[in-house]
């Protein structure tokens, strides 16, 4: 029993890491621009597809394909900001909402055109399994968990310890005051989209290596990502980290102990339960 719980926890950590990376991207974009960036999941999957393409058709080693895809993610994120969201920056909120939905459909369509409808699995060749007592940890999952932790820590350091990172927080908290500090509020969204999309691409690569990328997966992930935001508390980085981890583990344990048929429903049951008890989310501030 104990071993099973521990095993399920470890199982859930990898997908939890993916949720955290997606949610961090969504929460930064939401914090800065107040928009629900629905296309985030599909763009993240584009990064996963790209890695697959580079690693298979182009014959690049996966470890070389990943940085290329991450850089492509940064550029793509910036492009999305300039072309899609900047024009509606000062318009009614509904405009950004429609743009986000349209962009999602567009990116899904592009993914389908470029990479087809078949699922793709990024070949890593990592098939060793580590054993610890009764618990097993596949090599690949371990690396995914470690990579997720490294990325989250790197992002925290960037946001907390660098001027640009602090400027991002400042813009999220008070845009006018940030301008008075000399922050260029036109470049900050660019940086935020670049960073968020890179994190998303990392998540896409993880999904592609652990599981598979296929049409529709990105949209599913973005919905989970928003559930994590609400679960953890809107606009809170620690909330996104805690929320994503909790969701991953809860899904895994609930699928194991209740029923796998309800795995995707569980995210929302947990979210609703938490909101009933703490309307502001796990780490959100009381209004």
């Amino acid at each position: 029993m104990l071993i099973e719980i521990l095993q399920q926890t470890i199982n859930g950590l990898a997908i939890g890491g993916v949720y955290v990376l997606i949610a961090l991207g969504l929460t930064t974009v939401f914090g800065i621009l107040g928009i629900a960036h629905f296309a985030h999941g599909s763009i993240s999957m584009f990064g996963g597809y790209l890695t697959y393409f580079l690693a298979t058709s182009q014959g690049l080693p996966v470890l070389a394909a990943i940085p290329v895809a991450l850089v492509a993610g940064i550029l793509l994120g910036m492009l999305v900001e300039i072309l899609a969201y900047r024009p509606v920056r000062n318009a009614n909120h509904i405009n950004a909402f429609i743009v986000a939905l349209g962009l999602t459909m567009m990116v899904e369509g592009i993914n389908l055109q470029l990479f087809g409808h078949e699922q793709v699995v990024i070949p890593t060749g990592l098939s060793r399994v580590f054993r610890l007592g009764g618990i097993t940890v596949p090599e690949l999952r371990l690396y995914v968990i470690v990579a997720a932790i490294v990325l989250v820590v790197a992002m925290m350091i960037f946001v907390e310890r660098t001027k640009t990172g602090q400027a991002i927080r400042a813009v999220a908290e008070n845009r006018d005051a940030a301008i008075l500090m000399g922050v260029n509020v036109r470049t900050i969204p660019l940086i935020v989209f670049g960073m968020s999309t890179a994190l998303g691409v990392a998540a896409g690569i993880m999904v592609g290596a652990l599981f598979a990328i296929a049409p529709g997966i990105g949209e599913g992930l973005v919905v989970k990502g928003f559930a994590v935001l609400i679960l953890g508390g809107l606009g809170s980085f620690p909330g996104a980290i805690l929320g994503g981890t909790v969701l991953g583990i809860t899904e895994s344990i609930a699928a194991g102990f209740i029923s796998s048929a309800y795995k995707d429903v569980i995210a929302f049951v947990v979210m609703i339960l938490v909101l009933l008890i703490r309307p502001q989310g796990l780490l959100g501030r009381a209004p």
Partner: peptide, 20 residues
């Protein structure tokens, strides 16, 4: 009798349960 759907890719919860 554990279930997966066409879209499931993470079977570790079900498998862990079965392993137990």
């Amino acid at each position: 009798r554990e279930v997966f759907s066409l879209k499931d890719r993470d079977m570790t919860p079900q498998l862990t349960k079965i392993r137990g």
